[in-house]
Amino acid sequence: MTYLLITFQALVVLLSAPLVVGMVRTLKARFQNRQGPSIFLPYVSMLSLLRKEMTITKHSSWVFRMVPFVVLGSAFFLALVVPSLFFGIVPSSLDNIFLFGAVVALGSVFLVLGGMDTGSTFGNMGSSREMTLATLVEPALYVSLATLALATGAWGMGGIVGHFTSLPWLVAVPPAIVTLIGLLFVLLAENARYPVDNPATHLELTMVHEAMILEYSGTYLAMLEYASAIKLTALLAVCMGILIPFGISAPPVTFFGLGIALIAFFGKLALGAFAIAFIESVIVKMRFYRMQEYMMLAFFIALLGLAVELIVLYH
């Protein structure tokens, strides 16, 4: 039964991932007073990529072909452990916060290797930048996760979100707000959104994430795009799950509860997508060589969140 629930939960995240990307894109278009594409467009474009031929550079090795599998695999893992509908069902070894951080890093590392294995300067440049960002974002990510764990006394993603569902919103969530802001900074950096990266750019010199996948085509490109959609959805689900813990429940699960959980989940994703589209419409992208300021800010916000939690805990 537990495994059935895990599978169901993972499937919901996996199936809704392209929808989140579509929603962000459409909402951004609305902010630009455009009609924008259908929110289901990413499904069609990924399916059509699956049908296409692949062209691969002759200067690449097996690493290039392995990259999509590892990146998508790490994204699948995130989808598997993120408590989107239920908590307390994933084995405690798998949803540990530090394993979560390491799997996120594993995905980034392989994306970087893919960019390096083409012999193309664009890919190399994207890789160098992505690796730098992945390095500098780690302290903020780990401090944020550790703060949440400290506040809840649970060391798994499920336990953390579960703790927030069990307490009244006004008691549990406000102390964690600062940490959530820190986590938002991490989310924007990890998913190549504004102000770290421009997901819609066509200019190679301003790219980070896009530059690494310029050489991928067909199925592999679909896998990588899908992976980044899943990663965005998973991190968004964590943030929103803590901010609005409504609807997430522990087993035993009733059909009614399941329905509520599903509706709440999609509502939260829509809210999260709106927030991202809003952020991207009102701020500008930062210059890459100013990223240290952004990362320092993220780190200090995470530390501030920790200080707040410590004060709440010990006073």
Binding site: Q35, G36, S38, E215
Partner: peptide
């Protein structure tokens, strides 16, 4: 790509690499 014509609503988009293109 501007708000007036908005080619994106037809599912048409411009990409950065010929390997991504139809």
């Amino acid at each position: 790509g501007n708000a007036f014509y908005d080619i994106e609503r037809f599912g048409i988009s411009f990409v950065a690499s010929p390997r991504h293109a139809d």
